[in-house]
Every structure is written in C-alpha cells, then in structure tokens.
C-alpha cells in the first residue's frame, strides 16, 4: 500500500491505496464518493469523468498514484443549482451518463472561452448517452452557458 495525498473537491485528502488502483476505484471504494460511475472501463463512455488539475479526464484511465499533489474534482463538488438547465432541457433520462455529462458540462460553462475554437458537440463527444439522443444535453449546456453569460 502507498499513501496518497491530494486535494479532493477543494479539501486535503489522504488515503492508503494499492499501486494498481485506478483513480475511479479510489474515489468510489476507498473514499466513498460513488457519484463517479464506471460505464466501460476503457475510456470510451465518459461516465467516470472527473476534473484533474482543472481538465476533464476519464478516472478509469488514471493510475491513482499519479494524482499525488494534484487537484481532483468529482460530481459531488458541483453546485446542484448549476445543473438545473440540464434537467429542464431533458439532458438526462436513465441517468447512467449524467455524472460524467455534468462534469464535462460544468467544465465548459466554467471555460466559455473554449467555445471560440470548439463546438459544444466536439467538447461533449467523450460522454456517450444511450437515451437522450444528445439534443437535450446540448440544449441544456447551451442554456447553462446563456444563464452564465446573463449573470
């Protein structure tokens, strides 16, 4: 076992990990933060998306030992009010993809300047959804961006 110290959702965290643990396993099984979901375990679906030093990454592909000293944010850190536009616009049905979608969505809303070079659909391409057909997700993120621009 090795001791891992990092910043989790803005607070210091220390946890004993196995060198073979993925960040996803540490969050869910050692720290009890089960909001982050495992869909595919191969980097395709985005259900396990967290922010690592401010960028969205698939926590199923991050060796836990690599986050020593880093900043990690999970879906538990999001402000529920910020997710309201996603609910209103039908961005969620069964909810399996929703924690990951919410992480990517809130990252985009926090960095609107990135839309100068990227479309919403390109930025959301790493979050697969079997239910909504994506239009609801794109509309929800757009509404959240519009609300942010008005605020």
């Amino acid at each position: 076992m090795i001791t891992l110290a990092f910043t989790l959702n803005g607070a210091p965290a220390t946890v004993e990990i196995d060198p073979a643990d993925r960040l996803l396993d540490v969050l869910r099984e050692r720290l009890g933060l089960t909001g982050t979901k495992e869909g595919c375990g191969e980097g395709e679906c985005g259900a396990c998306t967290v922010w690592l030093d401010g960028l969205p990454v698939n926590s199923c592909l991050v060796p836990a030992y690599q986050v020593r000293g880093a900043r990690v944010h999970t879906v538990e850190s999001l402000d529920p009010a910020a997710l309201e536009p996603l609910l209103v616009h039908g961005a969620t049905q069964c909810g399996a993809c929703t924690p990951g979608v919410a992480m990517t969505a809130c990252w985009i809303v926090g960095h609107p300047e990135i839309l100068a070079s990227h479309s919403l659909r390109e930025l959301l391409a790493g979050n697969l959804c079997r239910c909504t057909g994506y239009d609801g997700i794109v509309a929800g993120v757009q509404a959240a961006l519009d609300a942010g621009a008005r605020a």
């Binding site: 980097g43 985005g46 998306t49 690592l52 960028l55 969205p56 990454v57 698939n58 592909l61 991050v62 990517t104 390109e122 930025l123 391409a125 790493g126 979050n127």
Partner: peptide, 11 residues
C-alpha cells in the same frame, strides 16, 4: 483534435 475526445486529449 481527432484523437478520442477531450478526456483522452487531456491525458
């Protein structure tokens, strides 16, 4: 920009 998606490009 055509590698995987943002989550893969970031890593």
């Amino acid at each position: 920009r055509q590698v995987g998606a943002v989550q893969i490009q970031a890593r």
